[in-house]
Design a binder for these strands. Structure first.
Lengths: 352, 352
DNA sequence: ATTTTTTCCGTTACCGCACACGGAAATCAA
DNA sequence: TTGATTTCCGTGTGCGGTAACGGAAAAAAT
């Protein structure tokens, strides 16, 4: 063990009775090797437990790998900022192996923007791609193109029903909704639940939070068949309208101890309202560690957040690609469902 | 960015009007260079922004780094098994950089064993050490020796009041107790809490769970000043005795809805008892993701576990050491408090 | 002035691998 | 049988450093 890998390509060559050039050829499947030699060499490699020294390997092959990451653009404090952080971490890791990264953003509400970004990425001929998809059909087309060009790609956040991808890192959306319901109710006597949703026009985009909501509702109907669920839609861009809708909700339902949930990352909208109206009697659960959500958690306007460490997902995606490019090793598992963290005011500080 | 570091040692040599041998001498402070040349070279290095290529560097100086990990020995399913898993992961990572690992175990109840392991490690002259300390004084002595020999070391699990260490990865013990109390009580009307403890003779060993218990008790006295806390001691080796003690506890306190907590990883002892006695009315909180704890969580005999991902801690420690040895880069933060995960039956499957 | 010692530096042989190049042997075509 | 191809393989160079070696120049000793 202390000795490390002493077996070099030369040892293999000698043992197989060929030259290192030939060994190298089979190692990289470059052909021009007789079946006999190849077999012999592979056997020897196995017997000797030869592992290429990738210092030497990288040094000698001055390849310039490049990974493109395609994610939605974002403002400060928004969900995708955390993903960006993960990309930054990943950049550092990949940089060690001489692999450069670039993040390509698209407007998640604009199909054209997405298409444009995709073709830009294709034009740059990347060695690998990380993608957080929002548009189903376009993404599938893009994925097909990547497959055809033998460019490995990794999904993060959500994935599609294509299976040419190298790996996927994301949250189990259905289960996160189920878990959310369990935390919200927590064995209490719950008669009514308010789901706050974002009023958005979905032009054919695949919203992963739908799956989450399904999980939530399933839990409730299994455990609280009598419980009523009310949907309330708020406008993310218009505070006045938002407050009006929420005011109405509070007026129509006189119970002060409401159960409120938001299935996306914007629970801070609700928290802000509660803070302004100074309402502290509700039990509110949301998702994702945005700064504004954390603030709400600390102030007690949100009781718990379910978080998915999207930074780690992005970093893991990049690591997987890096390892694949450098070591030709696919990740152990293709589908990686990252853990769902439950944050409350006492442990949230350790999640940043 | 795409180009990476194009400046080589030869460029520096040429620009400084010397040979690369001389440049190498100043790079490694090997002396035998005139003040004039040295100055010139350093200036050129700065100007050109030269960064040595560590692939080439490691390849050429066929160093054999070796990291020793010192942790308590364990049986299957015990707490330290998870740490071992982290070490395994770390081994893979370090292995990529040609660094070998070895895990050295000691009996956490036997000082001599610890000392013996330490001197064994010292004798092997490791390039770096990861240590999970249990004995204060001996560890401090050992740490001093490592410092003197300029061997970098990293604490995991808990650390001591020495500050020569490269980094620390562990759980915030006090806060974990505080958090635990919050989860146990969860806004309920709690009049009495049972803390189950392990009856052990502590021969001067530093038990980190004491700190945790303090956090727990502080929370309770802050939020439930009227609440009574009762300590019950059980024997980990003797089931009969354990059951007798617990039977007595249940007999003396007639309230079926007890609040029970264990501040170490052995909450499965309680769960097993409850399962055998078919008691499902208690609220039980424990720590750490042992298989037996998870089983208890799934079966509903434990309501929540607080986990610290000790595998990640170990892996992070090894990564930190590796990076330090290879890149001469100390980790960004010296003290790294890892997150406290709250596990319940619905999210626990994603933590394994 | 000559010899000896230091000081300082260039040269060179690797490290383990990738890949281009060229050539021998085998196969095919004529 | 001979020339043209194809198949297969060995050799050699270089990637960017490291460090041993030896020697020229400068300083010190005689």
């Amino acid at each position: 063990m202390h000795e490390g890998n002493k077996v070099t390509i030369n040892d293999v060559a000698k043992a197989a009775g060929v030259s290192k050039g030939t060994v190298d050829r089979v190692l990289h499947d470059r052909g021009e090797v007789s079946a006999r030699s190849k077999e012999k060499i592979l056997k020897v490699i196995d017997e000797l437990g030869y592992k290429p020294n990738f210092y030497a390997s990288i040094l000698a092959s001055k390849k310039n790998f490049h990974i493109s990451c395609i994610i939605p653009e974002f403002c400060n404090g928004e969900f995708w900022e955390l993903t960006q952080r993960g990309i930054d971490q990943g950049t550092e890791y990949a940089g060690r192996f001489g692999i450069s990264l670039s993040a390509m953003m698209y407007d998640q509400y604009d199909l054209d923007s997405f298409q444009h970004t995709c073709s830009e990425v294709l034009a740059s001929d990347p060695s690998g791609v990380v993608i957080a998809p929002m548009f189903r059909n376009e993404t599938l087309k893009f994925a097909k193109e990547l497959s055809d060009r033998h460019i490995p790609y990794v999904y993060i956040d959500s994935k599609l029903e294509d299976d040419g991808y190298l790996a996927y890192y994301g949250m189990p959306m259905y289960q996160s909704g189920y878990l959310c319901a369990d935390i919200l109710t927590d064995g209490r006597d719950v008669g009514k639940i308010h789901i706050i949703r974002i009023a958005r026009d979905k032009r054919g985009l695949s919203d992963p939070t739908i799956t989450r909501r399904t999980g939530f509702i399933d839990y409730i109907s299994e455990h609280y068949p009598e419980c009523r669920i009310e949907n309330t839609f708020i406008d993310p861009k218009n505070k006045e309208a938002r407050y009006a809708v929420l005011d109405e909700m509070f007026a129509s339902d006189t119970d002060p101890g409401k159960y409120i949930v938001m299935c996306n990352s914007r629970v801070h909208f609700v928290a802000d309202y509660l803070r302004d109206r100074n309402i502290r009697t509700c039990r509110v659960i949301g998702f994702d560690v945005l700064d504004r959500n954390l603030a709400a958690l600390r102030d007690g306007f949100v009781q718990a957040l379910i978080a998915q460490h999207s930074d780690r997902q992005a970093a893991a995606a990049i690591t997987a690609l890096t390892d694949y490019l450098i070591l030709h090793e696919a990740p152990a598992k293709k589908d990686n469902y990252t853990q769902m963290d439950i944050l409350n005011r006492y442990n949230c500080d350790y999640y940043i």
